[in-house]
Lab assay of single mutants.
Amino acid sequence: MGKSNSKLKPEVVEELTRKTYFTEKEVQQWYKGFIKDCPSGQLDAAGFQKIYKQFFPFGDPTKFATFVFNVFDENKDGRIEFSEFIQALSVTSRGTLDEKLRWAFKLYDLDNDGYITRNEMLDIVDAIYQMVGNTVELPEEENTPEKRVDRIFAMMDKNADGKLTLQEFQEGSKADPSIVQALSLYDGLV
């Protein structure tokens, strides 16, 4: 993909415009910024974590950033290329609610087996709590990752089998306004 070129080839721009919710001009602008920050044309896990640390200076986002990195890194080569970056950004910032929920499901399904187990969710929720640090005051019933996961599973795990399917996750998330709101945070920002 033209590693350190400051412009993408027209056919690449066209393809990314088809695969995302961005215009050709927006794709070019994002590429310019991506190459400025990642001259090699790729972003590794350490660089990704560094970006998260800028956004969450009062907590430790390392663990959460690693989980997000793994979802962005579609081809699992340990690096995020621009096409992976822009497609994930498109879903998280401008995707439909169902697209965002499928993306979030992939984030929580750490072993990619098609289910979110209690332990997988606990890993992610714990990482989120570490990331936000003491900057967020949580209600008593959610002031630990374990309590939050218990509440989520009580609401979403309809067949009580200890794991969530994509359908259970989507339906449960849509029924909880706070989850829908959290997924909409990026709307309109890009």
Rank of each mutant, 00 (worst) to 15 (best):
G188W: 07
F56V: 04
E14T: 04
G47E: 07
S83T: 05
R18F: 12
D150A: 04
A182N: 06
N159W: 01
D37F: 09
K53G: 01
G41M: 02
Y21C: 13
D176W: 12
L8Q: 03
N119S: 13
D123T: 08
G162C: 01
Y52L: 10
E99D: 06
Y129V: 01
E168D: 12
P145M: 03
A65Y: 10
K25H: 01
A65W: 06
K158A: 00
M155S: 08
G33P: 02
E84D: 07
L166R: 08
Q49K: 03
D123E: 11
G95N: 12
S83Y: 07
K3Y: 03
F67L: 13
A88D: 13
I116N: 03
G114D: 07
G59Y: 10
Q49T: 00
K7A: 02
I152F: 08
F69V: 12
D77E: 12
D187N: 04
D60H: 09
V71D: 06
P145T: 08
W30Q: 00
I179N: 06
N5P: 14
N159L: 01
G47W: 01
A65R: 06
M121F: 04
A127F: 03
L101G: 06
Q130S: 15
A46N: 02
G59V: 09
L138G: 07
K32N: 12
I80V: 08
L107N: 05
E11W: 10
G95F: 02
E74N: 02
Y108V: 04
E14D: 07
Y115G: 08
F69Q: 03
D150L: 08
L122F: 09
A175T: 09
I35Q: 00
E168G: 11
K76V: 12
E26P: 00
V149I: 15
Y31A: 15
V136R: 00
G162L: 06
I152W: 00
K63M: 07
E140D: 00
E15F: 10
S184M: 05
F55A: 05
Y52K: 03
I179T: 12
Q130R: 11
K76E: 10
Q87K: 02
Q29M: 08
E11Q: 00
L43F: 14
K36R: 10
L8I: 05
E15K: 14
E14I: 10
F58V: 08
G114W: 05
F153D: 05
V27K: 15
F56T: 01
Q42T: 14
E14Q: 12
G47A: 01
D157N: 11
K158V: 10
N159V: 13
T23Y: 05
F55R: 11
S178V: 06
K50W: 15
D44R: 14
C38D: 01
A127S: 06
D176Y: 11
E15R: 11
V27N: 13
E137F: 11
Y31T: 04
